[in-house]
Design a protein around this nucleic acid. Sequence first.
DNA 1: CCACCGTCGGTGACCAAGTCACACGGCGTC
DNA 2: GACGCCGTGTGACTTGGTCACCGACGGTGG
Lengths: 220, 220
Amino acid sequence: MNGPGDWLSFFPELAGLSGDHRTRLRERAHRVEVPAGAIVFSPGAPCGAYLLVLEGSVRVQMIADTGRQIVLYRVRRGESCVLTTAALLGEEAYAAEGVVETPTSAVTVPRPVFDELVAVSDVFRRFVFTGYGRRVAEILATMQAAVFHRVEPRLARLLCATPAPVTATHQEIAAELGTAREVVSRHLKAFERRGLVRLGRGVVEIVDRPGLDRLAELPA
Amino acid sequence: MNGPGDWLSFFPELAGLSGDHRTRLRERAHRVEVPAGAIVFSPGAPCGAYLLVLEGSVRVQMIADTGRQIVLYRVRRGESCVLTTAALLGEEAYAAEGVVETPTSAVTVPRPVFDELVAVSDVFRRFVFTGYGRRVAEILATMQAAVFHRVEPRLARLLCATPAPVTATHQEIAAELGTAREVVSRHLKAFERRGLVRLGRGVVEIVDRPGLDRLAELPA
DNA sequence: CCACCGTCGGTGACCAAGTCACACGGCGTC
DNA sequence: GACGCCGTGTGACTTGGTCACCGACGGTGG
């Protein structure tokens, strides 16, 4: 079948896949539904299959021994979580963990099938490689910001990038930026005093978006 | 020819390559010699070929707009520089630059040949993927340390890991750790006052290695 | 309805790191 | 021998991270 219910249609980059390879994927891949809060993989227990997300969102983050975290990226509809697969291929363990944020439906491709398709299908191989390259670029940019850039503009950028009233605790925002909760609290309070935002429990309401934008543009 | 001068022997992981594929690689790859100080690739101008290093060392580093740097990894004898290739595949540009540290001889595999071999050779593909996985793991570990860990133990670790009297300017050490020169100078001076090292112009002589080791083991 | 409790946010004190400015001294060159 | 560069040392200040602790909100269960 190739109808509207076909999950392959979620991945436009796989549109060029030959009939044989489509069939192979459909036969050997498993659909899974994962509830919010589930941990898909963690440093101790890496996942043994290639993961393709159809719907929902998986947050991938690093956790330091001090308890501080940083969110590396999210895997969403139509995206793949190559990173862990690569960890398997490279036979190294990443200190990263994958947490399901919203109820997620996904497809897992067993390792042998993955290997086979990478070998025989140009389209599939290209899909994997490009996904991989994009991810790594994303991670590098995120961590570069965390290492070299000041918190204030990054926080402003985050607020601007999030739609409507931001519903997140200061702790969650801190994890997003790779900093400490207190630091976020202080900056937000300063923003509030400057009339840029209004603060509530678990909510940041944006009052002066242009003002925030200006802060976000600032250098370091 | 398959004699001792054959560069393929530098890559034990490619030993299993079939005769056909060996020949293909030998015919289509180009040997290049690059002098120290040369910049192999930079954010603006990514390299258009797969790079295999036979001898020498290429330093890959990120540079922030503030001028601060961080060394991500080094490509040495028998290693490949997949990262930039991946950048090409992912059609994203990394903000990383590759600087030749010691005169380097390398082999470049043109993009089409690279694509072809990844497609037809299991051995070659595995070589590329494992190299890639290892690199990414390495980079993540490095940046995680820079984001979450204190400078003192990291500096101690670096000194311990470097053979004999360390010949590097404070600036170079700072780039290695992703911090500022002044920070390195201060910590080194403190080390000297505690009798752990002796400082000279461009040299750090290690006096009390066990003492440094102890510092290196410390938590954060 | 109210007492209890867990989570979230605010804050002060302190330490570590990054930035800025500048001074000093060795070493090579002209 | 004077000049100038480069590597280093340092003080003053800002920003960020940690620790300790408080108070306020919101839900739960008597």
